[in-house]
C-alpha cells in the first residue's frame, strides 16, 4: 500500500500557491510595463520623434485588458481551490475539479513546454467526497507522467459505476496510489501506459 499524509497535502497546497503567485507576478509585470509605457509616452512626449498613433495605444490597452482577464481567471481558480477545503466532504463536479487543477498547474506545464489535451465526458455526474483530495491525487498522477515537451492527455469517462480520470503522456508509466488517505478513490496504471484515477460514483 502506498503512503500519503496531511504533510503531502500541505506540500501540494504550497506548490499550487507558489505556482499561482509566480504566474500572478508575471501578469502584474506585463501590466506594470505596459501601463508604465503609456505613462512614459506622456512623460517623454517632448522627446518622442513622433507621437504614438491611436492604434498603438489601443493595442497596449487591449493587451492590459487581456492580462487582467487572465489574472482574474487564475484568481477565480485559486479561490475555488481554497473553498474546496471548506468541508471534509461535499458534492462536486469531477470535470470542474480536473479543469481547475490543470489551470493552476499552468505555470509548471508552460515551463516544461507540456501541452494538456483534455476530453471531458459531458455526462459525468456530481460525486460526494473530498475534491481537494482528488486534486492531490490528480497532481501526483500528472507529476508521474510529466515530461518536458510531451503532451499530456486527460479524459474523464464513466465505467463500472465509477468515474475515471485517464491520464497518458505516450511514455511508459508505473504509478499506483492506494493509500488510505485517498479512499474510496485510488489510482492504478493500465497496460503500463495510462493512469486511471477511479472515483466510485
Amino acid at each position: 500500500m502506498t503512503n500519503c499524509s496531511q504533510q503531502d497535502h500541505l506540500a501540494f497546497i504550497g506548490k499550487i500557491l507558489s505556482l499561482y503567485t509566480h504566474e500572478q507576478k508575471n501578469h502584474l509585470a506585463i501590466i506594470n510595463e505596459q501601463a508604465g509605457f503609456l505613462g512614459d509616452m506622456i512623460e517623454f512626449s517632448e522627446t518622442l520623434s513622433a507621437l504614438p498613433e491611436a492604434g498603438q495605444l489601443l493595442s497596449i490597452i487591449k493587451s492590459i485588458d487581456a492580462q487582467i482577464k487572465k489574472s482574474s481567471d487564475m484568481a477565480k481558480s485559486l479561490n475555488s481551490f481554497g473553498h474546496r477545503m471548506d468541508t471534509a466532504l461535499c458534492s462536486f463536479s469531477v470535470n470542474d475539479c480536473v479543469k481547475e487543477t490543470l489551470a493552476l498547474l499552468h505555470r509548471f506545464t508552460a515551463q516544461k513546454r507540456i501541452t494538456i489535451e483534455g476530453g471531458y465526458a459531458p455526462d459525468i455526474t456530481h460525486v460526494t467526497g473530498s475534491p481537494s483530495t482528488l486534486q492531490l491525487l490528480l497532481f501526483r498522477a500528472v507529476m508521474a507522467v510529466a515530461e518536458e515537451n510531451a503532451p499530456i492527455h486527460i479524459k474523464t469517462f464513466n465505467a463500472d459505476n465509477s468515474i475515471i480520470i485517464g491520464i497518458t503522456s505516450g511514455s511508459p508509466v508505473d504509478f499506483m496510489e492506494d493509500s488510505d488517505y485517498f479512499k474510496p478513490m485510488r489510482a492504478i496504471t493500465i497496460n503500463g501506459r495510462e493512469i486511471n484515477i477511479i472515483i466510485p460514483a
Binding site: A29, E33, Q34, F37, D40, F44, T47, Q67
Partner: peptide, 15 residues
C-alpha cells in the same frame, strides 16, 4: 518569454 512585458520594457528603457 513574456513578449508583451519584454517589448514594453525595451521601449521604456530606450526612452
Amino acid at each position: 518569454d513574456e513578449e508583451d512585458y519584454a517589448s514594453a520594457l525595451v521601449e521604456r528603457l530606450n526612452l
